[in-house]
Amino acid sequence: MALEAISKQEIKSLIESYENDRRHALRIMQDMQRIYNYVPREGLEALAERFSCPVSSLYSLATFYRALSLKPKGKNVIKVCDGTACHIRGSANLIGSIGRELDIAPGETTEDGMFSLELVNCLGSCALAPVMVVNEKYYSKVSMGQLAGIFNKIREGEDQ
């Protein structure tokens, strides 16, 4: 997501759609995460102004909660479930294979900004283990051999 896509006006109206109460901070940042794929600095600063609190206290929230990221994520976020059921059915191998396929480690984004790899705690789809979710689409009982095909398809979809 390019930086110019961030409009201060949009951030302002998002913040003002909630009442001026600190308890909505997490929720507003979750909204930002959804819109921009990360929590931009501008967003934190605008929030600090609204709540009359230091940016650092919002920074501590943003780094504490896993759902929030301070760095832009790739266009396609690959979430690999590393819950216990997936783990004992081989999610670690899956993560390794994705790493080899896309040359990224968990938490990283490919150089072309196409893919980010994330490990998530249990998605509650243990019957389908190991599970991988890309852009909200579930891939169940994923084997290492399927990965290249899945990623190519996503790349092709982007080209169109």
Binding site: Y65, R66, L68
Partner: peptide, 25 residues
């Protein structure tokens, strides 16, 4: 409804309450 922020510790009751209050859990 309060949406959790993805922190396991927030399943602990006092951490969960801190999180609802808008603080670090």
């Amino acid at each position: 409804i309060v949406r959790g922020g993805g922190a396991f510790v927030c399943g602990e009751s006092t951490a969960l309450m801190a999180s609802i209050e808008g603080r670090v859990g």
